[in-house]
Design a protein around this nucleic acid. Structure first.
Length: 288
DNA sequence: AACTCGTGGTT
DNA sequence: TAACCAAGAGT
């Protein structure tokens, strides 16, 4: 197996999409916000919201000074609205513990609310140029196919970080580029469903392709059904709160015709427990 | 370790 | 059309 990084980096140099967070001088705060938004939300849907967010809150302190409700509202339909709440908490933590500057140290980043293995290293690498493996679902799929000869990656595991570390060039800039390049390759060429091997720079060396595309099985956990789920009910409740005049709605007017009233009540209770809603005087509102 | 947590486009 | 998929994290 030849070194992958020089091959993928050469491809990336000519094929990288001009995404906002790749612009020179985009800033660590912008990178952090983008990574929060990109957790399980497609790139095309993130771009316009990211711009709005950074115009409104150019620094962590700006966001920390706003009520969480504003963050949840501007999050709009990006999905998983708890991320908006967590990003707000992270901004408070950055203001209070890091003098308002996004930390560079991976352990300090990991200590922020809503920042895990992926986001912490993504910030350290893409915002600060440090030398760490950044592993997202795209990178895991590229390595599973090109290196391990598997059709699909297994469930996320800590050893993924070690596997990526083995592929990183020693030089920091090249390593940072390879982290981004592997993600890009997985996002636009080595895709989950219909990989475009004819356009892949790794086609000649890919273990999965060279083995004749064997069906190696798929051990990934299947996604739960959304229709009729608690998540759907929560989403409906929160949409009402986001769009409510004065940001509050009478409790008995929150999705009153939901098919399962007990599920509706359960959704409201869980949103309150998560800090995404507050109840008082028969009214439900976003958190202040 | 398995489960939960949104939303919308694609197949 | 039901299922799949999308720069994950917390519990």
């Amino acid at each position: 197996m030849p070194e992958l990084a020089p091959i993928v980096n050469a491809w990336f140099e000519r094929n990288a999409r001009p995404l906002p967070w790749r612009a020179p001088g985009f800033g660590a705060w912008g990178v952090l916000v983008s990574e929060f938004m990109l957790q399980q939300t497609p790139v095309e849907r993130v771009v316009p919201r990211l711009q709005e967010w950074l115009e409104r809150w150019p620094t962590p302190a700006d966001l920390a000074a706003a009520p969480p409700a504003d963050a949840v509202r501007l999050w709009a339909n990006l999905g998983y609205p708890r991320r908006a709440l967590w990003l707000h908490r992270a901004a408070v933590e950055i203001r209070d513990r890091h003098d308002g500057r996004v930390p560079r140290d991976v352990d300090a980043l990991l200590a922020l609310t809503g920042v895990g293995d992926y986001t912490a290293r993504a910030v350290a690498v893409f915002a600060y140029g440090d030398h760490h493996p950044v592993v997202d679902t795209n990178t895991r799929r590229v390595l599973a196919r090109a290196v391990d000869g598997r059709a699909q990656p297994g469930p996320p595991a800590r050893r993924d970080l070690a596997a990526m570390a083995l592929q990183l060039p020693a030089e920091h800039d090249a390593a940072a580029r390879f982290n981004a390049a592997a993600m890009e390759l997985g996002a636009v060429v080595c895709t989950a469903r219909a990989p475009r091997c004819d356009a892949c720079p790794l086609a000649a060396v890919c273990a999965w392709r060279n083995a004749g595309y064997p069906d190696t099985g798929d051990t990934r956990r299947r996604q739960a059904r959304y229709e009729g789920s608690d998540r759907q009910a929560r989403g409906a409740v929160l949409r009402v709160l986001r769009e409510a005049p004065e940001h509050a709605a009478a409790l008995d007017q929150v999705v009153p015709d939901w098919p399962d009233p007990r599920q509706r009540d359960r959704a409201i209770d869980s949103l309150i427990a998560d800090g995404l809603a507050e109840a008082s005087g028969g009214m439900l509102r976003l958190p202040r």
